[in-house]
Design a protein around this nucleic acid. Sequence first.
DNA 1: TTTAGCACTCGCACTCTCTGAGTGCTAATG
DNA 2: CATTAGCACTCAGAGAGTGCGAGTGCTAAA
Lengths: 352, 352
Amino acid sequence: MDLTERKRKILRAIIENYIATAEPVGSKTIASHPALNVSPATIRNEMADLEALGLLEQPHTSAGRIPSPKGYRVYVNELMEDYRLSVQETRKLNEALHLKMRELDQVIDQAGRVLSQLTSYPAFALSSGASRVTIQRFDLLMVSSDSFIIVVMTDNNVVRNRLVRLPSDLNEAQLQLLNTLLNTTFTGLTLDEITPELMRVASHAAGEAYGLISLVVSFAMDVLEHLEQRTVHTAGIANLLSHPEYRSLERAAPLMSYLSEDQDAERFPVPQGDPMEILIGPENVADALKDTSVVVASYDIGDGMRGVIGVVGPTRMDYAKITARLSYFADGLSRLFEQGELPPGDQGTEQP
Amino acid sequence: MDLTERKRKILRAIIENYIATAEPVGSKTIASHPALNVSPATIRNEMADLEALGLLEQPHTSAGRIPSPKGYRVYVNELMEDYRLSVQETRKLNEALHLKMRELDQVIDQAGRVLSQLTSYPAFALSSGASRVTIQRFDLLMVSSDSFIIVVMTDNNVVRNRLVRLPSDLNEAQLQLLNTLLNTTFTGLTLDEITPELMRVASHAAGEAYGLISLVVSFAMDVLEHLEQRTVHTAGIANLLSHPEYRSLERAAPLMSYLSEDQDAERFPVPQGDPMEILIGPENVADALKDTSVVVASYDIGDGMRGVIGVVGPTRMDYAKITARLSYFADGLSRLFEQGELPPGDQGTEQP
DNA sequence: TTTAGCACTCGCACTCTCTGAGTGCTAATG
DNA sequence: CATTAGCACTCAGAGAGTGCGAGTGCTAAA
C-alpha cells in the first residue's frame, strides 16, 4: 500500500485515536495532532481519499471516520511502531509466568487464564495434539494382592498411570509375565496399529490374565487418543464486557457463546508460518469472528510439540501492546518448557 | 408459613406463571386459572395480603406481582410439586453421564460443563479438597541411565507420576536405595509433617543421591498440596444471556465476572446437611449472588471424598425441574464413581 | 365474603424537536 | 495547484411530551 507520507501519518493518527477512544474521529481532532500541521479541511480531503481506498469507513454521514479492517491491516503491517514493554509490564509478565508445573492440560489452561488477565481480553489456548504417538513402555506396579498400578510412557515422554482393582487375586509373578508380554507386544505401535486381531493374539498368550490385557491396553489407547486430540481452553470471557463494542448483547452474546462452546479446536486459528499472527475481522474464517480480531502465537513445548495461545477482541484492539505482550508471554512459555520448569508430558515430567 | 388453601393456590399459580413467562402476573391471569374459581377482584385482595406477608412484590404500582425471595422459599419448601423427569430427559441425562474417565479434575470440569448444557444455566463444580492426605508409597522406575519416573500414591488412592531427567548418570542400585529410603522415611506423613529437618536427615542418609531426595519429595508435596486444595470449575457462563433477566449488561456483567474469577472455591456455596440445597437470592452469602439463586448438590467420589456441583441462575428459576435434574445427575455421578467407571484419584484410578 | 364498577397510577412505546458534531463543496488565497 | 476559510447540509442521539393499556385499590352492592 503506497501512500503519501501525509496520508500515512493521518491514517495512523486516526487509528491510534480510535483505538484509544472507541469514538469515530473527525477532521478537527486529527488537525490538532502535533505531527500534522494542516487545517481540518485538508484533512477532510485526505480522509475522503483514504475512504475511497477502503482504509476508512463512515458509520453515518455526519460522523467521523473509523478504520476499516483493511485500514487496520495496513496499520499493523506498515504503520504500527513496536510497543516497548515497560519495566512494570515485564515484571508483571514474568510473575505471571510462574505457572505451577502440573499436567500439561492444566498448565495450558492456566496460561490462557493468565494471558486473559494480562490483556483484559478473552484468551484461548490449544493443546497441541501430537500425531502418531506410540507407547514406549509399560510398567505394572503391585499395590496389594488385588490391585496394581499401570504406568504407561509414550515416545514423546508423556507418562500416565491408573490404579486398577481386581475382583480376583494376582501374584507378583503373573504381573511380571503380563508386563513383559505388554512390552514385547504393544510398544512402538500407534493407535491405529493396535488391532482387535493383535489383542486377541496377546490375550491368548496371556493365559489366565487375558482379561487384564484388554484393561491395560485400553487404558494405553485412552492415553494415545487423548494425546492426539486437540482441545481448547478458553478464559476470561467476561472480559469482553469491559470493552464498549460489546456493551450491547447482540454483539456480545454470539461471540461469548462461540468462545464458550469449547472442545472443538478446529474453530480457532493457528499461526501458519510466523510464530505470531494477527487476524483482523473478516480475515477470520469462523463466522462468529468476522468482526473481531484474533492475535495468536505459538510456543515450544518440547518433544516436537507446539502450543498455541491467543486472545480475541474487537477489531479496535491495541495491536501494538497486545502483540508485544503476547509474544513476550509466548517466548516465556517456550523458555519455561525448555528449562524444564514445566512438564512437556501430559502427566508432569521434568527435564532439568 | 400457614396460609389458607386458597392463598397457597394463588401463590403457587403466580410463581409458576412468573417462572414460565418472566412477566409480572396480574389478578386477571390468575383468576382464569382452572384450579381457582373466583373473580379478579378477590384475587387482588388475596394478592394484597400475600404482599403484606412479604411473599410477593410489586415492581411498580400499575404492574402485576412478582414473587419475593421469601415467596420462592415458601414455594420451594411447601408448594412445589416434584417434577417427574420424562423418559427423554432421563435418557439424555444418562447419556450425559458417559464421562470419559480421566483425571478427577477433568471429570469434574466436564461434569460441570455437561450440567450447564442440561440446565441451560451456568454451572460450577468444586473439587473436593481432602484433608490430611498422606503418601502411601513411592516407586521409582528407571527409564534410561539419566532419567526415571517417580510414581507417588497417596492413602486415598490417588496415583501421580513425573518423568525426571538428570544431568548425571544413575544406576539401578542407587535408585533402589533411594526408593527404600523414601518409603521408609516419607510414607504416612501429611504435608505439615514433612519438615525441612526431616528432609535434611533424609538427604544425609541418601549419600550421593541427596539432591534427588528433595526432587522427589517436593513432587510428592506438590501432589499432597494439590489434593488438599479446592478448586472451582465454571462452565456455560454464556448461558446466562439466554435468560431475560440478564439481557441488560448491568445485571449480567457482575455475575459473569464473579463466575469467571475462578480459583477461589470458598466463594461458592456447598450443601450443608442435605445432599442438595437451594439458596434463593439474599440467602446467598456472596454479594454478587444476592439476586440470583443457586442450586447445589453433592455426590460421592469415594475414598471419603465428596464432590460438589451446582447451577446459578435468576431467582426466577424452574426449581422443580432444576432440582430434579440436578439430583438425578448428582446421583448418577455418585453411582459412576462407586462402580469405578470414573477415577476416584486425581490420576485415573479404577475399581471394577 | 365475594364481586362488579370505576377512578387512578405509571411504565412503555412512540413521536417530535433540537442540538451539535462532522461532512462535502465552493470559492478565495499564497 | 495545493491549501484553507466559509457555509449549507446531514444525521444520530438526547430530551420532552403524549397516548395507551395493563393493572391496581377502593367502594358499594349482592
